[in-house]
Design a protein around this nucleic acid. Sequence first.
DNA 1: CGGTCGGCTGTTAGCGCTATCAATAGCAGA
DNA 2: TCTGCTATTGATAGCGCTAACAGCCGACCG
Lengths: 343, 343
Amino acid sequence: MTKPVPDPRHTLTLRDVSEASGVSEMTVSRVLRNRGDVSAPTREKVLEAARALGYVPNKIAGALASQRVNLVGVVIPSLSNMVFPEVMTGISSVLDGTGLQPVVGVTNYLPDREETVIYEMLSWRPSGMIIAGLEHTDAARAMLGRAGIPIVEIMDIDGTPIDHAVGISHRRAGRQMAEAIVAAGYRRIAFMGTQMPNDHRARKRLEGFEAALAKAGLTLADREYYSGGSALLKGREMTAAVLARSPDVDFLYYSNDMIGAGGLLWCLDQGLDVPGRIGLAGFNGVELLEGLPRRLATMDACRLEIGRKAAEIIAGHRKSDAKAGNSIELFPTLQPGDTIRKV
Amino acid sequence: MTKPVPDPRHTLTLRDVSEASGVSEMTVSRVLRNRGDVSAPTREKVLEAARALGYVPNKIAGALASQRVNLVGVVIPSLSNMVFPEVMTGISSVLDGTGLQPVVGVTNYLPDREETVIYEMLSWRPSGMIIAGLEHTDAARAMLGRAGIPIVEIMDIDGTPIDHAVGISHRRAGRQMAEAIVAAGYRRIAFMGTQMPNDHRARKRLEGFEAALAKAGLTLADREYYSGGSALLKGREMTAAVLARSPDVDFLYYSNDMIGAGGLLWCLDQGLDVPGRIGLAGFNGVELLEGLPRRLATMDACRLEIGRKAAEIIAGHRKSDAKAGNSIELFPTLQPGDTIRKV
DNA sequence: CGGTCGGCTGTTAGCGCTATCAATAGCAGA
DNA sequence: TCTGCTATTGATAGCGCTAACAGCCGACCG
């Protein structure tokens, strides 16, 4: 019944399947999308023909005709640190059942690049957008606001969302860590972090951290920034530099776990008494820490949950477009590990 | 000149811009795509109208009309280990200048899932596909072969590519490592790796490794597999288990650097003489290793270069469709680090 | 001064699919 | 037997954009 592909260079269309199975294109379309009533024998005929030909539907045409695109744009600054892959896992786990598919764009922490990525994504008319952070160019905000689709800004809630936001308060996270450190009796505290003007979440954590120190009558004893390279190695180097410059520092606060782990390994190498002589803390709660000789104090960033909740907002948007509760705040827990003195 | 958006709920089309600027849709299209001759004043008028309205072109319609899609599908098994993000970096760095955009799909090492992801991607009619590995379901191979676009299978070249392949020989990599280990005088060698039947590259490395051992008259003294969890921690646990069970083992070969790093940290914790009493080696050459107390022996997998070369094949396909040299083999270098005895 | 060319703009006809409605057949009930 | 219904299938008209070609106009040539 099924004749061989006539022209192997020609990409197949519904018409080819329709001719091969002897029904109209419309019926083939219905079978392939599993929509509308089609009799069992017809369905079988069509499916067999499609399989035999190796037909792959053209979603471009389908999306244009139906004005429906099952794509969700996800815009994140980086894939190389361990944090965003886990957010992606959360997103995928929710989207998997819904027929929606995530499409990732990476911005490298560059606002202009982010604007471009957003523009590109919107031009595919996705069903929703998930974007890391609350800070965007004016043009990006405008585009997103006008897109007519659900927008979820994730990771951070210290600011005004365009539509929805899911995240934690990094200012509060910084504050909490500072309070715990001060409560444990540390007084000469140094900070180490990335030199990234556009990592607003790290910035806000530090702001909260310093604010809490100020409330306790303290200021940072020293600070050091890095950019690029192996975070673990940079953590070692920065720690060595800070302790050489400020030998009386008794606590090291890192803007992320990776450099914190490097610092911890260095301190242990040096035989420093951790957490007696010196304490350390990072941020993110990355899985990696579990394998270290000592567990670094940290705060989990609720990454999985953020991804999940964001995806739920997008997926649930079809039913209810009620704009209730635009910001969802999650609360990270402080994990003291073994690198802060017990009070 | 520019009247306010008439219906804020209505998504803008070329017609809106065309009406707002008083020229035909075609001219607007030409301006926005920067194609064909348009007079400077007209161009200005159009651009201003588009900007004022906040128009975002509909690529779905554009792609359908022009039969051109500037997307490249990238299908990889995972984002959570450090290896694929670097491949992505290589791909992006080449694609960035070409107007092509990568779209990532993750398969979690599941063949059926991979088939689905490929099907979904092909249904968007991308300009090319980059896929990790040479092992796919029959259906997946058939779809890819018929798609009429350049297909590049990456990471591995031990097998027959559908179209192009860029990668290293994992069998050879395993063999080389085994030879180096044997040459350094180690004799009782244990292996630790992931329990993943579908990680064919890890499997091939081990095959090559065991083949080389056999040639030297040796067999693996012990082996241990894990799945899930923190790789660093698992490395520690497995190492402890293996050395408890087989105390006379003098070398530990890990299927990836992460568990190798865990094993190394554990050995150092125990005060074992590395590399005198016991040697260790991993695979991948991840950046993380640089921050460890001792550099783990490893082999870089040429990840950046693989991504780059794969992207070049896709990007270059427009000009020449000459199918010369379908497989590109890269050659990883063995980095002995500090965990193999110097001969 | 007619002809021609190049720069610029518009018109027409789809791309491959789906929404919508029309058509047909089969069949129960009046 | 005829009506009215349901189940199934087909015909038609776009979705928003671009390729291809057509048209217009002023400049420039012989």
